[in-house]
Design a protein around this nucleic acid. Structure first.
Lengths: 140, 140
DNA sequence: CGATAATAGTTGAAAATGTAACTATCAAGG
DNA sequence: CCTTGATAGTTACATTTTCAACTATTATCG
């Protein structure tokens, strides 16, 4: 890395970009549904992949279990999510979206799609593909 | 965006990647110098670009002013940073690293370089260049 | 000028987060 | 079985962050 310049430092660039994009998209779920980022991400996972345990959400989303625990409680209070104790292992519980939660998910999914389209407009297809793959690779 | 899948959602990917890389690099400045992320980022800016005001750090780093205000106070207490009131506009003050702060900066800069090298190893040069440019473009 | 608005930065209270310790349950090996 | 250790999830407490209100100063415009 001969030409290293601090303004190219990846954690820094990632943070700035993440902050900005999150802030922008936050408007959607915060204003409309009073949700926090972690809550939206849980809705995202359950809506996208269906019923799963908190632990699974943690590992899929790289989220800490206390954060998830609290967000799950908040979503339950909003009646967006329901819990069901596992029969085979009573330590864990299966989480899933309620009918209302699913409706919220569908709307947010549409907003996400619109956001993504606007976003992708700034890049060529190749750039966008490489960016996406790189970001995925980073968190494997 | 015909094949949009939520798991490709950019704010989500960015956040996961940013969280992970920040957490990794955090070990360096937290353990060694008891700094928080915002503090390190301020050291970063002052070390890289020299004297500037808090407002400038805010806009360059996409950081909120209260966060910066508190981090600046913390750095001042650690004797890493000094303030100097502007003569022309007495609302603002110029911030700069002390000798000690500069020494810390140099060490962190080296750690950053090492981190970046390891990081870049996961990608081809083209991929890395496109990733970097894309991230920069995002926050313009 | 002088009033009003804007800006740089700080502060207090409320909200969110991280850390560690905790409960309850299950797994494995003797 | 029964002890020891692991795991799912929660909770308490300390630390950070956010939000709104604040001080002090400068800019704008009648």
């Amino acid at each position: 890395m001969p030409g290293f310049e601090l303004e190219n430092f990846i954690p820094y660039l990632l943070n700035r970009a993440a902050e900005k994009s999150s802030r922008e998209f936050q408007a959607v779920y915060k204003q409309e549904y009073g949700m926090l980022r972690t809550e939206w991400r849980i809705v995202f996972h359950l809506g996208r992949y269906g019923e799963m345990t908190a632990r699974e959400i943690c590992s899929r989303g790289a989220l800490h279990k206390t954060k998830v625990s609290r967000a799950v409680s908040a979503l339950e209070e909003k009646r967006f999510l329901a819990r069901k104790r596992s029969e085979t292992d009573r330590r864990e519980e299966y989480l899933s979206l309620t009918r209302q939660g699913k409706s919220v998910f569908r709307k947010l999914e549409n907003s996400a799609r619109e956001y993504q389209e606007r976003f992708a407009g700034n890049f060529t297809q190749d750039e966008f593909r490489i960016l996406t793959n790189a970001l995925k690779k980073l968190t494997e």
